[in-house]
């Protein structure tokens, strides 16, 4: 139960801190920001991989494998596409400075 309480505190604290930071991001970067945070939620892939270390009946493992595919798609695709987008933003900026 102590662990769970800790998790709840972590949840609330990061929610607040993250929220305060996000209020400062200029609207022009909202799409890349959303795409980046979106990629972060792909960290569920960690949970999916950890499932394999537990005793799980047969075909549930294929469900866990599907979760890995989806999570990896989210994680890798998200960071890659954000990087591409921010590349467009940088192109000019680097010329001018």
């Amino acid at each position: 139960m102590g662990d769970l309480l800790l998790l709840l505190v972590v949840f609330l604290a990061t929610f607040l801190v993250g929220g305060l930071l996000i209020l400062r991001i200029p609207p022009r970067l909202h799409t890349p920001l959303m795409s980046m945070t979106n990629a972060v939620s792909g960290i569920t892939v960690l949970g999916a991989m950890l499932l394999f270390t537990k005793a799980i009946p047969g075909w549930w493992l294929s469900v866990a494998a599907l979760a890995i595919v989806a999570g990896a798609f989210n994680l890798v695709g998200g960071f890659t596409v954000t990087d591409r987008m921010l590349g467009f933003f940088q192109k000019r900026g680097t010329h001018d400075e």
Binding site: L6, M34, S41
Partner: peptide, 27 residues
């Protein structure tokens, strides 16, 4: 993702999920 993190007891998952969620709500 955050609830999933609580379910499997992963602090990292919970914290990242919560931050993503805060960002989404603010946007």
């Amino acid at each position: 993702a955050a609830f999933c993190g609580v379910a499997i007891g992963s602090r990292l998952l919970t914290a990242c999920g919560a931050t993503v969620s805060a960002s989404g709500l603010i946007l």
